[in-house]
């Protein structure tokens, strides 16, 4: 058990991390339509196996149900959501306004991102906003929460009470600034980090070593990101086509060498083995399991990784 830390918000995620437990988070992508059942179905599949669930914000720039509405649906189910918010689509007025809207439903976690470029999605002819960048969004939420003020300087009546997160990609280039970039996010006020999917554990360990060398693991909670492969094709696709991902050849080979009907099982096995190895790394505080359109496998992964039942906190 790690040393306990002070809690600043009502976030269950923060309380679990502060108590020294490994946190388990997952994510749900909202539907490309208005059917609320999609979110409630996914939420029900995983709610007893994870602490909080991220709701993505028009991921890969495909237009979907908004993250805030889907977060409210989860909240109504009794699942604590993490509101993902990208700076691509909203200016500082809309960002602050949505933060207040989320706070009015007592949504207590936010993940600040820049968002994939719109050229990847269904509106490549659209504008992007990027009035703020992800670090400046972190600063904005912290300012609203801690100072109780809008960016314009006016007081907020009932400021948002949010645990502030961001992403980190230990595998993007250039590698030498990946840790300085984390330090910069911490200076901006980030409190928890969910990393990009980890397949290259050696490189991740090297990154964590540099994180520890600067003592950053004591200033922020780091949740290692994991996405199980459904099949060998997915491993190859992620390796070759998704920007900023690092899938070593031996992992792709392991999936390819597995008979087709056993590949899903092997993908889960790799994921569970990765969690076991991540547990041994000092400074890893939890796991962010992104089972993309495969949410039904999250309970199995959590159980096999010895992370179930989930701790209770007040």
């Amino acid at each position: 058990m790690r040393e306990k830390r002070a809690v600043k918000t009502e976030s269950k995620l923060e309380k679990i991390l502060a108590a020294g437990h490994f946190a388990v988070t997952s994510e749900c992508g909202p539907p490309r339509g208005s059917d609320p059942e999609v979110i409630t179905h996914k939420g029900n599949l995983i709610k007893d196996y994870v602490d909080v669930v991220n709701i993505t914000d028009n991921q890969t720039s495909m237009t979907r149900m908004c993250s805030l509405a889907a977060c409210i649906r989860l909240k109504q189910l009794g699942v604590e959501p993490v509101l993902q918010m990208v700076t691509r689509d909203r200016n500082r007025i809309a960002l602050q306004s949505d933060i207040l809207g989320a706070a009015s439903f007592d949504i207590t976690n936010i993940l600040c991102l820049s968002g994939d470029h719109q050229s990847f999605g269904d509106c490549p002819n659209g504008q992007n906003v990027h009035d703020l960048d992800s670090m400046q969004l972190i600063q904005t939420v912290r300012y609203m929460r801690d100072e109780g003020k809008f960016l314009g300087g006016d007081d907020i009546k009932r400021p948002p009470n949010m645990f502030v997160g961001a992403a980190a990609n230990p595998f993007a280039d250039p590698f030498e600034i990946r840790v300085p970039r984390l330090a910069k996010k911490i200076a901006a006020g980030v409190e928890f980090i969910q990393t990009q999917c980890i397949y290259n554990l050696d490189k991740f360990e090297l990154w964590m070593q540099q994180v520890r060398d600067r003592g950053l693991h004591e200033k922020v909670y780091i949740l290692g990101g994991l996405t199980p492969f459904k099949n060998a094709g997915m491993a190859k696709y992620i390796k070759n086509r998704v920007p900023g991902m690092d899938v070593p050849d031996d992992v792709v080979k392991r999936m390819s060498d597995t008979p087709k009907e056993k590949q899903a099982e092997e993908g889960i096995k790799i994921c569970v083995e990765s969690i076991e190895r991540l547990k041994q790394i000092e400074g890893v505080h939890g796991f962010h399991i992104m089972a993309i359109e495969w949410e039904e496998k999250v309970p199995e992964i959590v159980k096999q990784a010895g992370l179930w039942p989930r701790p209770e906190v007040n």
Partner: peptide, 20 residues
Amino acid sequence: CAKRVLNGPCGGSTKGSCEI
């Protein structure tokens, strides 16, 4: 920068190239 980030690079920077 395709996202005009003032505190970059974003996570899409790969081998010196932009994600787009």
